[in-house]
């Protein structure tokens, strides 16, 4: 188990014990975190834009898992339109589609990156 501590003066939590942490990386994948072997553009953007803070692969975290998102929209036929719609959600945030929890806006994500991310998420099952 990775150990976790908080630098209280800053409120920052930092992981301790790198060797222990390394062991838990494989467990992490099983528990619904990013597939660390995925080297695609989508995975890279997922890490870069810190999507993992709210969304994981299979498990509901703060927001829905990619799997849940992918499943919900699997029957939509117009994929291009779907990607465009969800890309706007990524950037502007959203509210009401997954319960009462709002999604924060992400103004730092470009429209191109948002599309790549959405396509990557929709490909996940």
């Amino acid at each position: 188990m990775a150990r976790f501590i908080c630098i209280f003066s800053l409120g920052f939590c930092v992981l301790l014990s790198a060797p222990i942490f390394a062991e838990s990386a494989t467990e992490a994948a099983d528990k619904g975190s990013v597939q660390i072997k995925d080297t695609s553009a989508g995975a890279r953007l997922y890490v870069m834009h810190k999507c993992y803070e709210c969304h994981r692969a299979q498990k509901h975290h703060i927001g829905p898992s990619w799997q849940a998102i992918s499943q919900r929209y699997s029957k939509e036929e117009d994929k291009a339109r779907l990607v465009a719609r969800l890309s706007v959600k990524v950037i502007e945030g959203g509210y009401g589609n997954w319960g009462t929890l709002p999604m924060n806006s992400n103004p730092g994500v470009s429209p191109e990156d948002a599309s790549t991310l959405v396509e990557w998420v929709l490909e996940t099952n």
Binding site: F4, A29, K31, G32, S33, E53
Partner: peptide, 16 residues
Amino acid sequence: LATVPIEVFNDDANNG
């Protein structure tokens, strides 16, 4: 951080 299991974050024993 993307590879840290979410349980780690939510457990007070591991978090400030």
